[in-house]
Simulated assay, not measured.
Amino acid sequence: MLDTSANGALRHDWTVDEILALHELPLLELVGRANAAHRACHDPNHLQKASLLSIKTGGCPENCAYCPQSAHHRDVELTRDRLMDPAKVIGMASNAKDAGAERFCMGAAWRQVRDGSDFDAVVEMVAGVRALGMEACVTLGMLKPHQAERLAQAGLTAYNHNLDTSPEFYGKIITTRTYQDRLDTLATVRSYGIELCCGGIIGMGETVRDRASMLQVLATMDPHPESVPINALVPVAGTPLAGRARIDPLELVRMVATARLVMPASIVRLSAGRSSLNREAQILCLVAGANSIFYGDTLLTTPNAGIGEDADLVAAIAAPVRGRETAPKEKPSH
C-alpha cells in the first residue's frame, strides 16, 4: 500500500511517481488523507497569518516569465521604488501585528544581495521586526555565506527562495538563473540555521507531473522546508504569461493536499492566487492541509484578499459563539 504519511511520519525518499499517484487520488480520498496527516502534526484550528511587503519594487534583472517586477518585461505598468526606509518598514510591521499578523515577510526585487547600505538597511529591518515579537522572513535573491550569517545574527526566522516549478520545466520560465543556483542558495541559508520558506507556482503551463516533480525536490530535502508556499499564477498584463487562464480552484486544493501528505510537519502557505478563490474554496484548502495565509491587500505587486474578507474567513472557520442572544427562547409558562 502507498505510504501517504497520514500518521504524520516524515519521509525524505519520495519518488515523483509516488507523489503523482497521491495527487491523482479521488479528490475526497486525497483531502481526507491530507487532513489526517495535518491533524497528526498541527493544531487544525490554528491559522497563521503572515503579512508581505515589497520593500524594493521593480527593476529586477531576472527574466521570470510570471513576474511584473522583471526589467525584461517593458510593457508592464509598475512603479519602480527604491529600498524603503527601515523605520517605515518596522512601523508597517507593527501595524500588521496589530491587525493580527504573526509573521512579517519582506521582499526586494534583487537578483542577489550586495553588501553595502541597502543590505545594512535590510538587516536593520529584520532586527526591528524581531524586536516586535514577530517572525521575520525576507526574499532577496541569491546570497553569500557571510550575508546569511549577518541575517541569522539579526534574528531572521526564515528565508524565502522558491523553486517556482520542476527542474524539467524551469528553463521555460526562467533563463537568467539556474535551478542549481536556487538549490545552492537554499543550502547556504540552511547552513546558518535559518528556516527555509520554499515552494512554487502552478498554472504556468506545466504538467501535473511537473508539479509532482517540484514537490519531490522539496520533499527529499532533509529536513523539509519549514514553510512551503503554494502559489497559483496571477496573470499580469505585459508579462509572457499574461494570457494564461486562471487554474481551476480544485487544482490548488490537490496541490495543497499533496504537499501536506509528503511534508506533513511543514507549514503549508496558501499564497498567490487566493484572491480569486471564494470563501468555500479557501476553506477546502485549509481542510486539505494549508495552515497559513498572507494577510493584506497586496502580495508584493499582485492583488490579495482584503483584510476584511480574511476576517470573515477566520470568523467562518472559528467555533461559533453561542451567546445569550442566540440561545433558544424558553416556552412561556401557563
Score class of each variant (00 low, 15 high):
293 I>R: 02
119 F>E: 06
164 D>K: 06
74 R>H: 13
92 M>L: 14
165 T>D: 02
244 R>S: 05
40 A>D: 11
219 A>S: 13
68 P>T: 05
53 L>P: 00
82 R>Q: 14
219 A>R: 00
128 G>A: 05
291 N>R: 12
86 P>S: 14
267 I>V: 09
50 A>R: 08
240 P>M: 00
47 L>S: 00
18 E>D: 13
19 I>D: 02
225 P>I: 08
296 G>R: 00
51 S>L: 02
234 V>G: 02
280 E>H: 13
97 K>C: 11
69 Q>A: 10
28 L>I: 08
320 P>E: 06
90 I>E: 05
68 P>M: 13
176 T>A: 07
276 S>P: 05
307 I>T: 06
24 E>H: 10
186 L>E: 01
206 E>I: 09
109 A>V: 02
34 A>S: 09
290 A>R: 11
331 K>V: 08
6 A>P: 11
138 V>A: 02
41 C>Q: 08
95 N>I: 15
323 G>A: 13
318 A>S: 13
160 N>A: 06
142 M>C: 13
133 G>H: 09
86 P>L: 13
272 A>V: 01
12 H>M: 15
17 D>Q: 03
13 D>I: 14
73 H>C: 01
125 M>C: 11
127 A>H: 06
245 A>Q: 12
57 T>S: 09
26 P>K: 03
118 D>H: 14
173 I>T: 01
91 G>K: 15
20 L>D: 11
229 P>Y: 05
161 H>W: 11
106 M>F: 05
202 I>Q: 00
153 Q>V: 11
147 Q>L: 15
64 C>K: 06
116 G>E: 15
131 A>E: 12
68 P>S: 01
320 P>N: 07
270 L>I: 03
31 V>C: 10
248 D>N: 10
10 L>V: 12
275 S>T: 07
288 A>L: 12
65 A>M: 04
22 L>Y: 02
28 L>H: 09
10 L>T: 06
241 L>G: 10
83 L>H: 09
190 R>E: 07
287 V>S: 03
221 M>L: 09
231 N>K: 13
15 T>S: 07
124 E>S: 06
129 V>G: 01
63 N>S: 12
209 R>P: 00
64 C>H: 03
210 D>E: 07
105 C>F: 12
270 L>H: 08
224 H>L: 03
332 P>Q: 08
285 C>R: 06
334 H>G: 15
19 I>R: 00
317 I>K: 05
144 K>R: 15
333 S>I: 15
203 G>Y: 10
276 S>C: 03
238 G>R: 09
64 C>T: 04
318 A>K: 11
188 T>H: 09
2 L>A: 10
272 A>C: 08
321 V>F: 15
165 T>Q: 00
189 V>N: 03
207 T>Y: 13
236 V>R: 10
274 R>F: 04
162 N>I: 07
25 L>E: 12
334 H>M: 13
77 E>A: 14
99 A>G: 03
5 S>L: 15
45 N>C: 07
14 W>A: 04
179 Y>T: 07
88 K>L: 12
33 R>T: 12
42 H>L: 10
106 M>V: 01
257 A>W: 00
232 A>I: 09
263 M>P: 01
21 A>T: 13
296 G>W: 01
228 V>G: 08
32 G>W: 01
